[in-house]
Amino acid sequence: MSETKTPSKLEKILSSGQLAVTSECGPPRGSDPEVIRKKAQMIKDHVDAINITDNQTSVTRLCSLAACIHLKLMGLEPVLQMVVRDRNRIALQSDILGAASFDIHNILCLSGDHQKFGDNPQGQNVFDIDSMQLIQTVRLMRDEGKFLGGDDIARPPKMFVGAAANPFADPFEIRVPRLAKKVAAGAEFIQTQCIYNVDRFKEWLKGVVDRGLHEKVYILAGVTPFKSAGMAKYMKNRVPGMDVPDELVKRMSGVPKEKQPEEGLSICVETIEQLKEVEGVSGFHIMAIEWEEKVPEIVERSGLYPRPSVGE
């Protein structure tokens, strides 16, 4: 995996064998670009690339592509998140070209949350293609310079292609084969669901390593700090596919309310520490939901600072 196929800075760092650090910014529910710039400013020196979410939880927001362009104009490295929920194959390919025209070099291919969870539950979803097919589409556009319809692309996109993996959803035994399928489809890096159950994650990762998948795809372990005991309980009970062990909820509840954010950050740092040396982990994806200002602290306390610089 040492040869790079794109100008992506994220790919360069991963292929150099160093642990990569990514984080994400949710765009605003409005058109003020300052919101996105401010969030990026907070974290830019502590991460290698910044994901921009695509109408996450199906709530209408400023679009991922425009927000990625704002990052690009700041000289930063965006990861364009793209869900297949809202656009058909024409619109998806069109947006990929639009991103490529701004030299956006990373894309994360996702299904997208069902619209039932969002602000337009009565809307029609699209799912013309699925996330697996989106991965294949970007690879086809990049590697063969072709549209899905077979025509040639002038100046094909040069994107490092990522996908998500949830090691915790049931049935557990299909989670490694599902990753293998995404790799077979063309995924080059993976950002995982938030890890709280480290043992379970390691069990999944062992399956990944046993199949040699870690040599074909870079896995960035996903972490999200709890801001409060309430958040830990919510994640445990209300978010499907999330595995939060009881002892973490107890630990969060066991400290006074004003100390809970600090405890949540400590848990997050400990999780990273436990996974840093584990075979198969190529980096970390820190999802500090509306808490971006804490990303630098997490990165520094985890011993992941300073970030490497890579030549263009």
Binding site: S111, D130, Q133, A169, P171, I174, R178, P240, G241
Partner: peptide
Amino acid sequence: NGPCGGTN
């Protein structure tokens, strides 16, 4: 192509 991550 298989389930999403939201199986409950």
